[in-house]
């Protein structure tokens, strides 16, 4: 379980970083999305991984830490809003400069 999650986070981060280093806005956007997935999984794991345990504290029953789940929820909402805004900005850059490069530069 831990190995699987760690591999997934690592792979997502690697793909995200690779895509962020591209020059065009769409791959960068995709890379940021992948990076935020990796970060959300990482945050989720910071409360330790437990199977079949509810995030509610009950006497005598095992429970999982509810706080990271709340943090992840907040992070997802914020990340989603930011990505949507970046998509709008990239579209505006495309229509204003005619190029989808991140620096709105020339294609040549």
């Amino acid at each position: 379980m831990e190995a699987l999650l760690a591999t997934a986070i690592g792979a997502l981060t690697a793909c995200g970083v690779f895509l962020i280093l591209r020059a065009r806005s769409f791959p960068v956007l995709l890379g940021l999305t992948l990076l935020s997935y990796a970060v959300n999984l990482f945050l989720f794991a910071s409360g330790r991984l437990r199977l079949n345990a509810p995030p509610l504290v009950q006497a005598g029953a095992t429970s999982t830490d509810p706080l990271p789940q709340a943090l992840v929820l907040t992070a997802i909402v914020i990340g989603f809003g930011m990505t949507a805004y970046l998509a709008m900005l990239a579209l505006r850059g495309l229509s204003e400069s005619g190029s989808d490069r991140v620096d709105c530069g020339d294609d040549r």
Binding site: I20, S25, V28, L32, L35, S36, I78, G79, M82, T83, Y85, L86, L89, A90, R92, G93, E96, S97, V102, D103, C104
Partner: peptide, 18 residues
């Protein structure tokens, strides 16, 4: 266009920072 250009790099950098 100068604001959009500055904006894209500013937003990307701050998203990485976040």
């Amino acid at each position: 266009v100068s604001r959009t250009r500055a904006g894209i790099s500013y937003v990307v950098l701050n998203l990485i920072g976040s």
